[in-house]
Nucleic acid binder design. Structure first.
Lengths: 416, 416
DNA sequence: CGCGATTTGTTCAGCGGTTGAATTAAATGG
DNA sequence: CCATTTAATTCAACCGCTGAACAAATCGCG
């Protein structure tokens, strides 16, 4: 007994024309190679997918010609027969550029097709007093540096993604980034003239997205392949969440999903700047934690705050430990509500929370196990982000190369 | 609900074979016909999809031969040229059977391909004292009755979906339906021998799903076509939610999404049977509303309770009005949290709430507009379910025919 | 009423891409 | 060294889309 409720996303999109066949199979084979944990052979892919070996060979030829796939060393033998030639994603083909503007740093990183972070540049600076135009100019300089490094490696940048801590609208317009002090900042316009903003074949090379979204994607790509569902909570001054459902990021009806910072953890509690009361942000946001720990946190940049709290907690400071436990409990209430609603099996603590996970995790887990209905027979994992606090830039770069893996024909057409 | 690996793998890893081309285009054309508001012509479909008129004609021939599509009367012409022959979904082909077991009634309905409810049978009875085996036997009798009525109409039942108010696990196992008093009820086993449980071509004719999920699907199918995202809240003794994201139901990592009843609206509030505190159910569940209204509601069946409350509220009973306002406020807190998280533009009040919507809506909207960050520039609609309280059975039947529209090859292969 | 214009739907040769079997390649084992 | 086994390629066949030509049906205009 089984059921198939949903539709394949490919067929929703539109008609399947003659040429779509090869287009789709290029993606199928490339995804297979990307998802495999060991370099698969053509024959293995054929057996797995149901395609014939002839077709797989033809498709792989195209992929190799387009520098998306390379042949690896033959695997250690297992039995008789001609040895398979392993296929791996090319590490000298297209790469993605990930950028991030945050309160206290700029970052740029280069990720190749295999998902390896080839370069990672960070410039620490307090960007709150800096104008958006100025901040973006500095970012462009950093991006140029990263691009040069990529080119030296023989890589071709296929696009870039910029993470910002705020709400992003259509066309790369940053509607509101409260902690940066940005409002209605038109990123492409401010970058005009820079290569980042010059369309290639009509495809804009830069996409702007919410930091929490890209960080969640980073965790998705860093983990095992396959559809997974999890919540990635980014704890900074505000609290954002990236929601990955069945292996893809859920952005919401208008692209503004993930506003977990205003989850009501204490409905008649402290008033919040959003107009509501008792929002999570007022209990587990950075300012709230610093205040509870007795730290004059007003001037601490975001990342430093987490480091400072971690140091104090590690040293056994009672006020800090209490503050973190309370924050974790508030976070746990919100997380439990989300898990009940979405039936997730994993919650990732990212951003500043990644560093504070040792102290936040127990209270979060306590609330979850108490409040989540199905927790008894379906455990929920709470863990820190594997990419740590800087996963947004990596995730952004990953999203660029992921797009190529998902639709290689776009890259092949450009390369030809 | 259990996982559907077949479909996710079709879009993620499924190879596109030679025959898949026709398979996919059958679905594309059929969906186009289903989604159109006026009977489209072959030429129109070709223009819309990008397929050739020749291809569309060939595909349509297959669909007509399989009794999925019929030719309608030519539309009144407006210009020159040969008049188009309009295509509509067949109303005498396959149909879906929707079943529901609830606390105080059994229901069965037949929905044809066009989405029309052709038959709808309801048997009111308090099923709490009845054993699961007995209840399912009565349901099977009702199903047989509905099937006979469908056959008299020349319809062929292509499958059935059963809605239950509880958590459903793999293989149609009802793990827990608290208000029915069911625990680990193996529905297919108890229906053994009945035609409902006999597989046809290896496809089980019956799927079991959560009531709230199917009700949400009913609302999805009843509304305009196209991807939409909304939350469908079913208010009974417990409170469930069906989550539709981008036009498809989200079931969660294990199929247990939608447990909004235990959303913490008052974290230090009333203890709940789930072990948590201050859960929504304790403030906006039927029992809580009845108690607040001063009604000895213990013996009232679910549907009657909503009717009773609506009558009292309509008559201006002060205690009832206060109870509904308070319940609406609690519900609004939860809904606001969900909308913040998922960025939904619509919230549907279903189940018992559908009838109480006139009184629940204002407080819900008040909380939403106060607590939802983006409410200012992106309004959230709160409205009652168009299908009313019985949308689960209709939604279940709709899901059966929808599956055929989404993958017509399955039906065509069986019909041939 | 007749004829061209116009749009719909069908027919048919052509072709891209998959298919399946045969063939070649490369290694193991007796 | 040769049979066996597995991997990858080659090639004729075939399926289903494509594009253009053709037939069908109606309107507009004289």
């Amino acid at each position: 007994m089984w059921q198939c409720q949903e539709v394949t996303s490919t067929s929703i999109a539109g008609a399947v024309r003659q040429g779509s066949l090869r287009e789709l199979n290029l993606a199928v084979v490339l995804r297979r190679i990307a998802a495999a944990d060991r370099p698969p052979s053509r024959a293995g892919i054929a057996a797995d997918t149901g395609l014939t070996r002839a077709t797989v060979s033809a498709v792989v030829d195209d992929l190799i010609a387009g520098r998306l796939v390379a042949e690896a060393e033959p695997e250690p033998r297992t039995g008789a027969g001609r040895p398979a030639r392993g296929l791996v994603l090319a590490s000298d083909g297209p790469a993605g550029l990930g950028l991030e503007v945050n309160v206290d740093y700029l970052a740029a990183c280069v990720v190749d097709l295999t998902g390896a972070v080839r370069h990672h540049l960070v410039r620490r600076a307090d960007l709150r007093p800096v104008s958006p135009a100025d901040a973006l100019a500095r970012l462009a300089a950093l991006a140029a540096e990263a691009r040069a490094a990529a080119v030296r490696d023989g890589l071709t940048l296929a696009g870039a993604a910029l993470a910002v801590p705020g709400l992003v609208g259509d066309g790369g317009l940053v509607r509101l980034a409260p902690n940066l002090g940005w409002r209605d900042v038109d990123v492409p316009a401010l970058l005009a003239g820079h290569p980042l903003a010059e369309p290639v074949d009509g495809v804009p090379p830069l996409v702007v997205d919410n930091e929490a979204n890209l960080a969640a994607l980073g965790e998705l790509y860093a983990g095992p392949a396959g559809p997974r569902s999890f919540l990635h909570v980014t704890g900074e001054i505000g609290i954002g969440a990236g929601i990955v459902l069945d292996g893809s990021l859920y952005r919401g009806a208008r692209g503004w999903s993930g506003e977990i910072g205003h989850f009501p953890v204490q409905p008649q509690g402290r008033p919040c700047r959003c107009g509501g009361q008792g929002c999570l942000e007022r209990y587990a946001g950075q300012e709230a934690i610093l205040a509870a720990a007795g730290l004059p946190g007003a001037e601490l940049p975001a990342d430093t705050a987490a480091a400072r709290l971690a140091d104090l907690a590690g040293a056994g400071d009672a006020a800090t430990l209490t503050a973190l436990t309370d924050a974790g409990a508030a976070l746990g209430i919100a997380v439990a509500g989300v898990v009940n609603l979405l039936d997730l099996d994993t919650v990732v603590l990212g951003g500043g929370y990644a560093r504070l996970a040792p102290w936040l995790r127990p209270p979060v887990e306590a609330e979850v196990s108490q409040r989540v209905l199905t927790a008894a027979w379906a455990p929920v994992t709470v863990r820190p982000a594997v990419l740590g606090a800087q996963s947004a830039a990596v995730g952004g770069a990953g999203s660029v190369v992921r797009r190529i893996v998902d639709r290689p024909v776009g890259w092949l057409a450009r390369a030809a």
